[in-house]
Design a protein around this nucleic acid. Structure first.
Lengths: 210, 210, 210, 210
DNA sequence: GGTTAATCGAGACGGTACGTCTTGTCTTAGC
DNA sequence: GCTAAGACAAGACGTACCGTCTCGATTAACC
């Protein structure tokens, strides 16, 4: 009843570390599609078996890797929604922009969605990877969504507003630019974005056509 | 007098048609990764050479295919921005939802981004495919952006508003749900989305634009 | 204590056997140029990788195959050079004649060098295949050359004679007919050949060796 | 009765010349298997059609080419069989040795049968090419065979001797070395060879064991 | 001088094998 | 039961080369 008794040789934590290290290095050097499991194993000084015992798939490994490597994005709730959102989204944007360059060989390819696109595809291929990715994002954004809820409670956001929909608009715009249009995502854009989302596009005089 | 005199045997338009037909059929039956060039060639009654002469890569072919197949989404400018946007975005959403199912074998996997994710990854892998995809989206959205511009000129949208940013918020939210969070994209969501974007999230009393 | 400790999974001897079996069957059914690696792999129930891990090329495989399959030609040293040579060369001729027919589809083509020509070409294309072939022939003929040496020691062959040159004349004539002139190689021819080689063509009265 | 009246545009003799020139150059630069029809056409400034209208196959073209290029080997009938044969065979050997080097890239590969092996294989693949090659060799050797006949009539060769068999021994040995054993074929070898063939290998005392 | 017919350059095409690549599994021996 | 090493199955990919075909443009010979 004590839980599962472990038998035999325990998994080497050293191997874990070496694998993740080598994998990260390789991923950032080559990019997603030119990342090769065989080479990752060799670089880590590990047998492929050891690698596949931990992650059932290249996709699983890389998603796990990115999840681990991903920057912790702190959320400060200062009471100024606009400012807090801007800071948070700028941090996200920075992270995304870094992902654009991963594995690209020198020549300018600023518009590429790079690794994020591959991760998204990986998530689409394996249901469980999808779950993991979604969980990852959910956890990451929990605090911001809470922040938005607080703002609404304080009266800084309109009552009828949905935190989710609002955040979809903001994060969505960033990912849309990254994955689809390839347009730049800089600080100015983030500021504009928050502005639009908070203020609304409709002309104020007649706030609602029915 | 108009152009370059063609030399040699011209490319068979018949082959083009047969390839695209067979490829589409195969793509929708199998999905992106189980789409096989060899079989596409056989089904089209065409040599693989003929296929690779036109598209240097499976990715190129499939992106071109989707570009061609993609539904024409009509844009009606009725003067009612909210309604026009809702209609347009609903059409887009319908298309995206259809892409979720492509190639899925029976088992429920509603949250998968399916083919769109693969196309996005393809665009990320090959710079030229990326260009094509971006051009495609640019062309597709030209009319809506114009519609938004008109609305602003009419005074239905605030003067300081950017059509691009506004549209990013809207389309972005859809793609974000499709590719990242996996949440459903239905008519109600689209309505909500347009609502938020037009009205803004900030509490109206003190419209804190600086 | 003897040698290198083997690491990793050892090569499957079963695979070796199945490959060679299937390949032989396929080769003799189809002939050299209609022998297809893909099919050989399938017939052997083996991945193509497994096949190419052993032989880097179709040429390599087929030469190795023929080397293995090649009839052991026994050499009997009865003390009667003429008879021994005749027996040996007849056996060789029989083998060569069999090779003429390999893979030929019904229609009479008796003059074709068939597979031997292809093997010779393969040997010419890859230096290492050439080495293998030469080694093969060297080993094969060792005993006959020894036999000739013994005969010379016994006084049955002239002292100044070279076993190599003598054998070149004999074997050479067979291969010349097979590969170049296409003329038949039957028992009568072999007898004639041995006769000429042993007796010499020059008129006996004045043996004009200088 | 004048023969077939030619209609339409006559074949360009210029094209013939350019093709053969370019083909020869390419063949000697690349060797048989890396000779590519496409490139031959380009180099000759000719369409592939033009090329295939003249020779139905790469094999046909190259055999025809070699036939044309092949050195005329003069046969002098001085009345000294031994000397005449030696001269003739040395000339042949020189030609064969030249063929060894064709298309070989710098690195030493003296033992390769080079192009001759490929020609022999080509002859084995297409019956008509085989006929052509055989005819070529037959014509080439007619004079030597006649020379041998004369020698026999003069009493310089034994009465029972067959010119064909004798010549098979001589030429065969050369080709055997070239195609099979890879051993060198130099002047000394040719002299030895003629010597053995004329004198015979059997010890003279008991010229014939029965 | 117009008609006819074969040739030419150019390059697409069908066919098909090749050898490579990568993934994920399996089999050894050793710890 | 884990590990290193590496063979293995599976299967798609893109390339290569051959020989054929389809254009439009020439180039004679015949009428």
């Amino acid at each position: 009843m004590t839980g599962t008794a472990r038998r035999g040789r325990p998994r080497s934590e050293d191997a874990d570390a070496r694998i993740l290290g080598a994998a990260q290095e390789l991923l950032f050097a080559r990019g997603y599609d030119r990342f090769v499991m065989d080479e990752a194993a060799v670089r880590a000084g590990v047998a492929k078996t050891t690698l596949y015992r931990r992650w059932p798939t290249k996709d699983h490994l890389l998603v796990a890797l990115v999840a681990k490597v991903q920057d912790e994005v702190p959320v400060a709730d200062t009471g100024d929604v606009r400012a807090d959102l801007t800071v948070y989204l700028t941090a996200i944007a920075t992270g995304l922009n870094r992902m654009r360059a991963v594995g690209r060989t020198g020549d300018r390819d600023d518009r590429s969605a790079g690794m994020v696109a591959e991760l998204v595809a990986a998530a689409a291929r394996h249901p469980d990877v999808g779950d993991a990715v979604r969980g990852l994002f959910a956890r990451r954004n929990t605090l911001v969504l809470a922040l938005l809820d607080h703002a609404r409670e304080r009266g800084d956001l309109r009552a009828g507003t949905s935190s989710t929909v609002l955040f979809d608009q903001l994060a969505g715009a960033l990912y849309y630019r990254l994955l689809v249009t390839g347009e730049p995502i800089d600080a100015a854009y983030v500021r504009d974005l928050v502005d639009h989302a908070l203020t609304g596009a409709a002309a104020t005089p007649h706030p609602e056509r029915n």
